[in-house]
Structure formats: C-alpha cells, structure tokens
C-alpha cells in the first residue's frame, strides 16, 4: 500500500478513538473510582454482586432478551423462507414493509405500543368487537409488553440476515437433495437449515445483544415488573448521579455482551 493511502483511514480511526474508545476508557476510569472522589476502589463492582436485586434483575434481563430472540426467530425464519423461496414478484414489497418501521422514530414506536396495549386501548377495543375481551387487559406495565415491543423493533434484523442467507442458497441444491431421494422435510434439515445457519446466528446476535442493553422500552412499557438492567444504569447516571456505580454496572453488562457474542459466534462455528 502506498504510504499516503494509509492516511486515508485516519479520519475514521480518529473518530472511533475520540467517540468510542476514549469514552470507554473514561467509563472504565469512573467504574473504579471511589465515591468520595479520592483514589480507586473495587467497591463499585463488589456492590453489584452483594445485592441479590441486581443479580436477579440481570437474570431477568437475560431471560427476557432470550424470549425476544426466540420469538423473533420463530417469526423470522418462516417469513424469510417464504420471501426467499416462494415469493417472486412481491418480494421487494414485503421486504419494504418489514423495513418501514426502521424509519419510524423509536419513541413514536414505543408510545404507539403504549396506546395499543393499555387498558381500554386499541387492542382491548378490537378484542371487544370480537367478543373476546376481559375487563382490563393488564398487559401494559408488564414484562410481556416490553417483550412484545422489543420483538417488534428487533425481528426485522433477523428477517433480513436469514433472508440473505436463504436467498444465496442455489435452488439446484434443494432439487439435488430431492432427486437423491430426500423428502421436503429432510431437505430442510439437511440442506436448507445448515446452509442458512450463518444467517440465523447473525440474526440472534443482532437481536439478543441490543436487547440486553435496552432501557427505553422497559422504562415506558415495563413498569416495575418489566425493568431491565439498563434502567438501573440509566437511573444511576440521570437520577442518582452515581456515575461510578453506573459505570461499573455498564462494564459488567459489556462483559456479558462480549461473552454472549463469543458463545453465539461458537454456535456458528460448529455448524459451518
């Protein structure tokens, strides 16, 4: 590579250093700081493990994120499969419909769910018309509401990664499988699924990891029951001004994300 060409990466590198790496180190610095403002301590980290509240909340965050991931997968795979292998003319229209929510502001989406799910809201009205309503849905301000909204926000990522993986599979491979005596079901499990596995893994990564750190949806839709660990971090920074403890939790969450990514990555490695 020419010498001067190397410098073309400088603006990007610099931006990353200033806006991503540096803040991370600042946070790392805070996470070890003593609340008195003098010297360094491990106390912030110890505090997290001392109280069962934080551990429990982390556990529930992981379980909720897993729930979102699994539901997204169950919705996305069939949808992506139909788009990639069955639809021809209207494929792009369907893809567009899936992508459109991306163009909507996050808060608008969240408040839409609020109006839709609340007692006496749109969903209840609709069920009333069908004669299936009970008084008071009781969905809003629960974990269920958070999971529903997170699925809505994140499943398109899954659809798109799986769709791309499925679309790349040459139809001749599926025909070859059938010509060799494999039924449609066998063909799916022996050819289609293994060959689209990389898309599934990327999809899981793109859904599960952001879910772990989210805090807007739980805050607005979750109530007390639906809190995520992200809300604790948010509170520490904006309500309590406990930056040091907040930074420590943020780093623990960061570590969790890294571990999750490594695990998910290995899932992909085994199959391919």
């Amino acid at each position: 590579m020419n010498n001067y060409k190397k410098w073309l990466t400088a603006p990007g590198t610099l931006t990353l250093l200033v806006f991503a790496v540096a803040p991370l180190f600042i946070m790392l610095f805070y996470s070890f700081r003593n609340d008195s403002g003098v010297g360094f301590t491990l106390q912030n980290y110890v505090r997290f493990f001392e109280k069962s509240f934080y551990l429990k909340l982390t556990g529930r965050t992981v379980i909720s994120s897993l729930t979102v991931t699994v539901i997204s997968l169950l919705i996305s795979y069939p949808l992506a499969y139909i788009m990639a292998k069955k639809l021809k003319g209207i494929r792009n229209i369907v893809l567009m419909l899936i992508i459109i929510p991306f163009f909507t502001n996050q808060l608008v989406r969240v408040y839409s769910w609020l109006i839709f799910l609340q007692d006496g809201g749109v969903l209840e009205e609709m069920l009333n018309v069908l004669g299936m309503a009970q008084d008071g849905l009781g969905i809003l301000y629960t974990r269920t509401a958070v999971v529903i909204s997170l699925v809505h926000i994140f499943f398109p990522y899954m659809v798109i990664t799986i769709y791309i993986a499925l679309e790349r599979i040459d139809n001749a491979l599926l025909e070859a499988s059938k010509s060799l005596g494999a039924s449609a079901v066998t063909t799916f499990f022996r050819v289609t699924l293994p060959m689209s596995w990389s898309g599934v893994v990327s999809g899981i990564l793109l859904v599960f990891v952001p879910c772990l750190g989210c805090f807007v949806e739980p805050r607005i839709l979750g109530g007390v029951d639906g809190m995520f660990i992200g809300n604790v971090i948010e509170d520490q920074f904006f309500e309590i001004y406990g930056w040091n403890f907040g930074a420590a939790i943020a780093f623990l969450l960061f570590a969790m994300v890294l571990v999750a990514m490594a695990l998910i990555h290995r899932m992909g490695g085994e199959k391919q």
Binding site: A172, L173, E175, A176, S177, M195, K271, Q272
Partner: peptide
C-alpha cells in the same frame, strides 16, 4: 446439474 449442485457444507 449444470452447476453440479454439490452440497457445500
């Protein structure tokens, strides 16, 4: 097949 269609995995 024309493309052989061997299973790549």
């Amino acid at each position: 097949f024309q493309s052989y269609a061997l299973f790549p995995h």
